[in-house]
Simulated assay, not measured.
Amino acid sequence: MSEADERRLAWVYLSRVVQGPCAALSALIESVGVVEAARAVRERALPESLRGPTEQRRDSYCAAGDLETMRRIGGRVVTPDDPEWPAWRMLGLAQLEAGRDQDGAVPLVLWVRGSRSLLESTERALAVVGARCSTGYGDRVTGEIAGDLAARGWTIVSGAAFGIDAMAHRAALAVGGVTIAVLACGVDRPYPAQHDRLLAEIADVGLVVSEYPPGTVARKHQFLARNRVIAALSDGVLVVEAGLRSGARNTVKWARRMGRPALATPGPVTSAASVGCHRMIRDGEALLVTQACEVIDEAGPLRLSIPGSPPTVTGQAEALTGIRATVYAALPGVGARLPAALAAQSGLPLPEVRAALTELELFGLVGVGENGWHRITSGRATR
């Protein structure tokens, strides 16, 4: 067996053992390597923090069978060793504060149906999520925004649920665009079952993705963990219709923690289906958008200024290097951060963070308020 095959089987084995995010196992792999980590799990040579999470399926030696199942359905496993692993997307999760949330770990692997490259498909992507019991208004807004973005070359990422999710996928498919469905179960088990045909269409032209091995059934806690993958694979998260306790708000939480823009569309003030969107907009958790061009303004790539014209904020930000660039990148697209939090996220000493913030303020790129430092996203920057 080649070293590459041994490593792939080790990744697959560990994915089956923990079935979902496991920060302690990720830390062990980082420390000793995936092959040695798999051996430690099999032989129970583990720290206390890993004995519980690995005990139930430690003796599950079906890695070769899992790979065969994926081959049979036209799928594959993508590991951090593979060229199509979206490493730069996963950095958003890797930089989260360790121990703050047990579901915050980087996926061990991603199980994928569809022939497109996962890396290339997520180069420019937007997550579109929202209410399962959507209204006609919500469906129409989702269709217009997601369809317009897909027609412009954006990949639409969602969770294949009823309501807004399904509408976002269908809007992308209708214009011949690319869409990615992220599941909270194995990619060989369509969920919901009524979306079997929709998921097959997505796999034909886009991708169906999960961190859970084939055969895994959907459980409640897996949907919340799945939301972080939706956010991680995207440049931003758009919520169209959400109740006050909507799961879409959980996806927004992950986007904000990774510094990705969180966006929401308003609805009628009398609509219970839009209460969550209105609350997020009012509380500063999401920016109000109403059309695709506004989404691109917030989630799209930074624009260079026209030669000879006064430098714009985005143009100045594009030109940043070194510590200034690192500190600016650590600031969220929406909301504010204190210097200590920026130092922890960026790995820079606190004095260097404070100095960089002062310089960025002089450039007109950041401002400071009672909640901390924040980006200035429009207008002219100072030279």
Rank of each mutant, 00 (worst) to 15 (best):
A37V: 07
E211H: 05
I29N: 03
L50R: 13
L198Y: 08
L224Y: 01
A63Y: 03
L96C: 07
V366L: 05
R57T: 01
A341W: 00
T377K: 12
R76W: 03
P311M: 13
V178C: 14
V109I: 02
C293Q: 14
H195D: 08
G33I: 10
T216C: 07
A273V: 08
Y13H: 11
L244K: 14
A341V: 10
T312W: 04
R113A: 10
V295A: 05
G259T: 08
A248I: 03
S309V: 10
L126P: 03
A292Q: 03
M258E: 13
E318M: 14
E285M: 10
G364F: 05
L46K: 12
I202G: 04
R383F: 11
T251G: 10
C133W: 04
G92P: 05
G52D: 11
T69H: 11
V141T: 12
V34D: 08
I202S: 02
P86R: 01
E43K: 09
Q222L: 14
V239C: 02
G130T: 08
V78H: 06
V35C: 13
L96E: 15
Q316H: 08
A174G: 01
E55H: 12
R324N: 13
A45T: 12
A286P: 03
Q19M: 12
R228T: 02
V129Y: 05
G335F: 10
S378C: 10
G333M: 09
A105Y: 00
V252Y: 00
V269H: 11
A299D: 01
G236R: 05
A23S: 15
A319R: 14
E211K: 08
Q102P: 03
Y13R: 09
R228G: 01
R282E: 15
R337P: 00
L108T: 13
I296L: 13
D204Q: 15
G33N: 12
L238A: 09
R303F: 01
A262E: 03
Y137L: 12
L362I: 02
G74S: 11
D297V: 04
L183Q: 12
E36T: 13
E48Q: 13
D82L: 11
